[in-house]
């Protein structure tokens, strides 16, 4: 019998890892076991509905230095699935396992350290890409701005450029606010638990 496979588009930003974990868990409860992702598309295969915990960790370790990292997670009962964008995906069957054993972090301090690690690693890159976009399109942007200031009408390409830039700005604000919120939430939890 060949297994039924489906691919689903899923969009999760870097500050969205908890929502992603929950989504993978819900899918497995509906009988779709997570197979792999490329960051945008998620492949699932048909399975008997099962209770499984999915967890993402950002270790910040180089690929060659991870032997003992994977070994320890395996000892703890975590099956390693894959890596994408620096995040490692793990899963563990949830039946008959205590809530604490389904977490990767048992105190708030280590959890907040993980969040800090990937925000520090990723956010500068996102801003840098944006600045690079601005510089690459600098002449065009100046043209468009002057046209707008003089009330001249824009060409189609210039409208597109404007829209893309507006979208980037909105996205940048969105991801910054979202990261700040995620950080605050984890920090609040830290103060509660510590």
């Amino acid at each position: 019998m060949t297994n039924e496979i489906k691919r689903v588009f899923g969009y999760f930003t870097i500050a969205d890892w908890e929502r992603e974990q929950n989504w993978l868990t819900e899918m497995s409860e509906q009988g779709w076991r997570f197979v792999k992702t490329n960051g945008f598309f998620y492949t699932f295969e048909r399975c008997v509905p099962e209770r499984v915990a999915y967890r993402l960790d950002y270790s910040g370790l180089r690929r060659g230095d991870r032997g003992d990292y994977y070994a320890m997670f395996r000892d703890y009962g975590w099956e390693y699935l894959q890596d994408i964008n620096g995040f490692s995906y793990f899963r563990k069957p949830a039946d008959g396992v205590s809530k604490e054993e389904l977490e990767l972090f048992s105190d708030g301090e280590s959890r907040i350290k993980m969040v800090k690690k990937f925000l520090v690693a990723k956010m500068p890159l996102i801003y840098l890409l944006f600045i690079a976009q601005l510089l690459l399109n600098w002449d065009n942007i100046r043209n468009v701005t002057e046209k707008l200031l003089h009330g001249e009408s824009l060409q189609f390409g210039e409208c597109v450029l404007l829209l893309v830039l507006a979208f980037l700005v909105v996205f940048l604000i969105f991801i910054t606010v979202q990261s700040a919120n995620a950080y605050r939430r984890v920090k609040k939890e830290y103060q509660k638990r510590a």
Binding site: M72, W78, E101, L104, F105, S110
Partner: peptide, 11 residues
Amino acid sequence: VTISAGTMYGT
């Protein structure tokens, strides 16, 4: 006292 995998590795 439970020490989870990520916390153990980090500590």
